[in-house]
Design a protein around this nucleic acid. Sequence first.
DNA 1: AAAGTTTATGCAACCGAGTTGCAAAGTTGT
DNA 2: ACAACTTTGCAACTCGGTTGCATAAACTTT
Lengths: 135, 135
Amino acid sequence: MKENESKLENRHIKPTAMRELVLKVLSDQSAAISLADLEQKFEKADKVTLYRTLKTFEENKLIHSIDDGTGSVKYALCKETCQCHPEDLHVHFLCTKCKQTYCLTDIPVPSVNLPTRFTLETINMVVKGICVNCI
Amino acid sequence: MKENESKLENRHIKPTAMRELVLKVLSDQSAAISLADLEQKFEKADKVTLYRTLKTFEENKLIHSIDDGTGSVKYALCKETCQCHPEDLHVHFLCTKCKQTYCLTDIPVPSVNLPTRFTLETINMVVKGICVNCI
DNA sequence: AAAGTTTATGCAACCGAGTTGCAAAGTTGT
DNA sequence: ACAACTTTGCAACTCGGTTGCATAAACTTT
């Protein structure tokens, strides 16, 4: 799994064993994952370590966080080129049945015309409904 | 303040003294307000009562809640005609400087083309940036 | 108007996600 | 091998939100 190691290095994150494991879990997910979810993937890892790992990943834009309104923040991998700028942002989808949160990476967040003298930094757009697996 | 009383009755909420007071506070706000904010507007009211009042208002679509990602849910009045359906939804704006959350009632939430067989229930769209008062 | 029923309010206490402090373990550089 | 720094793990805390239960207030029925 040299690939993950270089992914970490690309984002200037020191590749420790723990971090590679967490990255592996994140890579294997098709949906975004919460800290609690992540904790359950490991039998023995400490919540705080995972928490700080996610923070480090997020600070270095390896992952992005999604506040989907469920009360727990989810995390998902960024694209290689992502800088988490407004033009990089995509829509997220929360299935109200299976509670999975998906990155709709093909759907960019629509631009909005803000009132005059409002400046834009970022946008969080979460669509809720029923996903294809739950119909 | 008969007006607020009838606003409550229109939404089939029994107009108690407490509820009229809370509605008055909400009416006076230009920005959305959190439970903690609301609590501070009263010297003596109990948090739980305010909490349940907000819940009742929300269930009856007198107000809507906004999860702006700050960790505390904000509430703001709905329009008279609002049914909180997707077509009623508007964009919200969180100022990262003053932490105020505004309803941009003139800006409807843009429609998104979901992947096939994804059905839409609701959308939460929060734009973050600097508001006109904080430039 | 009194008794009974329902609804709203208030207090205490709990819950869970996120977070911090600090010490131990591991890593890096000389 | 030693010092300096970074990462990990444990304990404990914060804070927003929530529930249970008892009291108070408001309606109903006679």
